[in-house]
Nucleic acid binder design. Structure first.
Ligand SMILES: [Mn+2]
Ligand SMILES: [Mn+2]
Ligand SMILES: [Zn+2]
Ligand SMILES: [Zn+2]
Lengths: 161, 161
DNA sequence: TTTGATAATGAAAATCATTTTCAATAAATT
DNA sequence: AATTTATTGAAAATGATTTTCATTATCAAA
């Protein structure tokens, strides 16, 4: 783990500095992986991808870094119910907009969707207002998710009949 | 673990039989706990309550039973993000109606609410229809949840300022 | 009611994702 | 370059849940 990380400064450097976190090689590499590759990676997924190019970066550091990035808000952590947390970049140039998820209960495939977000937000705005008064509860976030069977899993079930 | 379980047959006996599960003492006791006590119990919570009256029932059996009851639909399992699964009776006489949750991110308190369920369902019905076509995904269930700070936790924060 | 097949149980060990510990190392500031 | 201290990696620890396996209890059949 010596030398500086290749390419120039990144858009997230300021975020790190803002929280007085050092800009280290493992952090850069992990953020690069998160911003280039597909979403919803587990810690081990991240580790594996990182490991190919930088075999000296350990799994422990991946966990620590994902926790840090989640805390400072650069990354969002999800629990889809398969026993491992999943992570997704939350902001920046390559950011995906506000979206929710379809989760296949058979193969754990995750599908992002951003349809109806407007309508959802509108209803939730109203709900949040009423609930926070009624239950004296300050709402800061919400979770909407649909579970079911993806196309592949449905056809597998068909075949087995 | 000898002798039969005290009181007469229970409403859930038929559910168990339907799935060709034996009606055992541990299962009766665990179901009794779930139907009498407060909701959102962890496996260990259930074990502790069971243990007071029936010290011979093991934690392993509690886990196994909760899994079974979840599979046959008598119990619903939740992951609120504190590392342990929580369980709630899903049907029967003492059933709570369809409801969603407010989750305190500081103390993990869970508040049930059933306001706006109608409106939610109406919107979700529409969303589900469109999404299942667009993404070729058969939706079987949904999850709505609000995160935030409960009253107690807000006042604690106030005090510490 | 007794019997027999086998599903269910409990204790201990195993899993598995994640966290902690701690000595070594690297990033920022001077 | 020297100093300070946050960060790192390996190994061990943790903690919830599952698996294993020998023993026991349930239930249908005789
Ligand atoms: Mn997503
Ligand atoms: Mn509830
Ligand atoms: Zn699937
Ligand atoms: Zn709280």
């Amino acid at each position: 783990m010596s030398g500086r990380y290749g390419r120039g400064p990144r858009w997230w450097d300021s975020n790190l500095r803002k929280h007085s976190c050092r800009i280290t090689m493992p952090r850069q590499v992990i953020l690069d992986v998160l911003s280039n590759e597909e979403q919803h990676l587990s810690a081990e997924d991240v580790f594996l991808k990182v490991h190919k190019k930088y075999p000296d970066i350990g799994l422990t550091t991946v966990y620590r870094t994902l926790n840090l990035l989640t805390q400072i808000g650069l990354v969002v952590r999800f629990d889809f119910g398969d026993g491992k947390a999943r992570y997704e970049l939350s902001s920046g140039p390559e950011k995906k907009g506000h979206h929710h998820h379809l989760v296949c209960t058979k193969c754990n495939r995750i599908i992002d969707y951003d349809d109806f977000i407007e309508e959802e937000e509108k209803l939730f705005g109203k709900i949040e207002k009423v609930l926070s008064e009624k239950y004296d509860f300050e709402i800061t976030d919400h979770l909407v998710r649909f579970y079911g069977l993806c196309e592949e899993c449905r056809s597998e079930i068909q075949e087995s009949l």
